[in-house]
């Protein structure tokens, strides 16, 4: 089987599992402030996992693209430790707070610059803005077959066969490569990268290329900001939690009473 070239788009976001107390909203500056470490958006990690699996099966090369005003290569280097062959940061002051279409346009620029590819994988949506648009728009711009919500991907003679989630189960679909696929979490979580592996990667002298908008041939006019007109905190979801105390047995007894009362 011939080797395949995979491009994975991975976004750096604040930890989406951060507790509520770490998140605040600056309504004036229209910014969400999250006091939490940066991570790779979870669905993008899923996309990388499936890419690494495919590379293991049929061989090939994985390039990871990450776009932002400034991208932390320490966060993204994890992708190399996980099995990606190349990490390219797409960094430009004009990449700040882009709307989905502009993000896809910039990514398309980078992908065209790379030129040679069989599969483009993205997460189904990013864990910060939850828009779920960039992947499909990217596919449209590049005029590729688009498959969304993949839960399993296999390669068959120049084509890709995908199990995609649908409301009643799944649909097996097939498309000629190159193709764009958005990946859902059913493919499984990104393999764990041991500290020793990470250490090697961190110490690796490999420099990480960074491409600007100009490098990608994307004009400033093509880069539009998300049109945020207002930003506010959500209504308080908090309830007054009544703690049930005692030994496990006593707690169980009281909890059973709670259920009884709710019957």
């Amino acid at each position: 089987m011939t080797e395949i070239r995979i491009i994975v788009c991975a976004k750096e976001i604040p930890d989406p599992e951060a507790p509520l107390s770490d998140v605040s909203v600056d309504a004036e500056k229209m910014e969400v402030i999250v006091d939490a470490p940066q991570v790779i958006s979870p669905f993008d990690e899923n996309a990388l996992e499936v890419a690494v699996q495919l590379k293991e099966e049929v061989g090939g090369k994985i390039s990871v693209l990450s776009l932002g005003k400034k991208v932390s290569d320490t966060v993204l280097r994890k992708t190399l430790a996980a099995g990606a062959d190349e990490l390219i940061l797409l960094e430009d002051d004009n990449f700040d707070k882009l709307d989905s279409h502009s993000t896809a346009a910039a990514l398309a620029g980078a992908i065209q610059k790379i030129g040679d590819y069989d599969l483009i994988l993205t997460g189904r949506q990013a864990g910060d803005w939850d828009s779920g648009q960039v992947g499909l728009i990217l596919g449209e711009i590049l005029e590729l077959p688009c498959i969304s919500l993949a839960r399993e991907i296999t390669i068959e003679d120049g084509s890709v066969v995908v199990k995609k989630s649908i409301p009643i189960g799944y649909e097996r679909v097939k498309a000629k490569m190159p193709a764009l696929i958005t990946v859902s979490n059913e493919v499984g979580e990104l393999r764990y990268i041991s500290r020793t592996k990470m250490l090697k990667m961190m110490r690796g002298a490999r420099s990480i290329p960074s491409w600007s908008a100009e490098d990608l041939g994307v004009t400033e006019e093509a880069l539009q900001k998300m049109g945020i007109a207002a930003l506010s905190s959500p209504p308080d979801m908090g309830r007054d939690c009544q703690l049930i105390e005692g030994t496990p047995d006593e707690q169980a007894e009281k909890l059973a009473e709670v259920f009884k009362a709710l019957r």
């Binding site: 979801m237 309830r239 939690c241 009544q242 703690l243 496990p248 707690q251 909890l255 709670v258």
Partner: peptide, 22 residues
């Protein structure tokens, strides 16, 4: 616990078998 009405701070393996019994 911040959004719950009732909270039990305990290992589920302790509490659930007891709860089933009750």
């Amino acid at each position: 616990f911040k959004v719950a009405d009732y909270g039990v701070i305990e290992d589920y393996e302790e509490i659930i078998p007891a709860l089933i019994e009750k």
